[in-house]
Amino acid sequence: MSESNENNPVEIPEVFTDEVVARLEQDAKEIVSRYPKPRSALLPLLHLVQSEEGHVSAEGMRFCADQLGITLAEVKAVATFYTMYRRDPGGDYQVGVCTNTLCAVMGGDEIFSALKEHLDLANGETTGDGKVTLEHVECNAACDFAPVVMVNWEFFDNQTPATAKQLVDDLRLGADVAPTRGPASLCTWKQASRVLAGFDDGRAGEGVQAAGPSLAGLRIADRNGWTAPDPNNLPTRPDQGEEGAK
């Protein structure tokens, strides 16, 4: 059954038709089979229903509960604990600006304000065309590329207000957009959720292996001829005597 949210009146189509349920049950079986105990499949199952609907609705949670033989309340307790599960419908592209301390200081705050103004959205809101949901996110383990913007949880490194505005414009126009470190083009929110549920999209080989800052140390080591110790000719550790102390 579809609920409509007062603040965000979106028509929700009936998603979990018998046909869809039959298909998702196949997927759910595969997910459950990976684990020694079925309940471990709950997080991936929630990613799976999110990949179908774009968010996790009461119906989606009911589906998960049925697959695992647990109550709706048990599923709800879990789904609401984790921030990646959307409770309301959102856009095809979730644009998350990192505003944790390091990115904020490096300009994440300015980027987030610029996007709010540019799109006329508050945190968590979606553009009228249903393309972009804007939010701020916590540290995404890319601080050496600050300030960082994540779109559908792909990396857009070293952003500025101007590049971020261009990025959301391109997303809304449907132009091809490629993450800095990620696949050759962005997939949608639903497609990304399916990968998180554990279904491959065949794109692991796309994109760079490493970029810029990830290679900073390696480049300096190469330039200076620094390597790890040779196991067949070990040096003395600096704190272990004279020869080592160089």
Partner: peptide, 15 residues
């Protein structure tokens, strides 16, 4: 000095 070990092959595109 630096000791690239885990990052040793990161400059290979197929790493």
């Amino acid at each position: 000095t630096l000791t690239p070990i885990l990052s040793r092959n990161w400059d290979r595109p197929d790493s």
